[in-house]
Design a protein around this nucleic acid. Structure first.
Lengths: 148, 148
DNA sequence: GTAAGAGTTTAGCCTTTGCTAAACTTAATT
DNA sequence: AATTAAGTTTAGCAAAGGCTAAACTCTTAC
């Protein structure tokens, strides 16, 4: 009877699955941080500086929410800001932002290569970006390289 | 009820800004519900019934958390449960679960067709599943059909 | 130099999703 | 029948991420 084996397999699968879920959940905070940092980097590149209002506007969030979040990002060493002044990224912040943008670009190009509309590629890549492992990202990059 | 109104107002106000960000964020609660419902369906199919402990174990979460969540899912009309008894899905719950499993299957098969390991395909599909539009899902299904 | 407008911060509140510890119920064993 | 083990529920707490309203600061235009 493969009952024991089946149970063992089930247990193993359960453990792995719960790991996957836990990973997903604990990444939420990190995802948000990445969104902020990526956006701040974009704003600095686009208009020379990033202000709270701009961030709030683009994220569709209240000013006060941004203030609170920026405090956390400062504590995390990703951002610097003096009171009533514009937002800047630390070295670590820039690294994170660059990494995020790179992932974002790959995922978006991949979706385009898959034949999706620009609109869909933009929206879906935003959602997918944070959930793609390095292995998958590499496969996407390879696919884009082969199909362009 | 003021929640919905507030969100609607906020959405309208920030309409020109990034819809993708807000969509991602507001979907979190829905995603969690889908994860629960999908898992409950799996448990019922696998072992004939779903208990709180099983759900807690697979999601990597405390029992009390599951209890609280189940209350919400009951309020949402997705789940039924009598005190100290096993968990059941309503008709709507089954529909949601089936839909989730279908999406899940497509994404996972797609990642496999892309050449990823089973392990990676399983983990990444879990994260990606909820962020894929119908358009993208269709493209993934097409890809799988062509490459199998 | 001051007043106005734009932008920022603070204060206080809410909901969601988590946790632990303790109480309770059900089922199983003896 | 009584004890115990397994599972469930309650109570109370915390952190994250939202919000509004009101206070504050900075810059710019008079």
């Amino acid at each position: 009877m493969p009952q024991t084996a089946r149970r063992a397999r089930a247990a193993k699968a359960a453990k792995l699955q719960s790991a996957a879920f836990r990973r997903t959940r604990s990444d939420h905070s990190r995802e948000l941080a990445e969104d902020y940092v990526e956006l701040i980097a974009d704003l600095i590149d686009e208009r020379g500086l990033a202000r709270g209002t701009d961030v709030a506007g683009r994220l569709g969030v209240a000013n006060a929410t941004v203030v609170k979040m920026l405090k956390r990002l400062q504590d995390a060493g990703l951002v610097t800001q003096e009171p009533y002044r514009e937002i800047n990224l630390t070295g670590e912040g820039w690294l994170l932002a660059e990494n995020g943008r790179k992932r974002h670009r790959i995922v978006e190009n991949f979706l385009l290569a898959l034949g999706l509309s620009e609109e869909t590629a933009r929206i879906d890549s935003e959602g997918i970006e944070h959930h793609v492992s390095d292995e998958t990202l590499k496969a996407m990059a390879r696919f884009v390289a082969r199909n362009s």
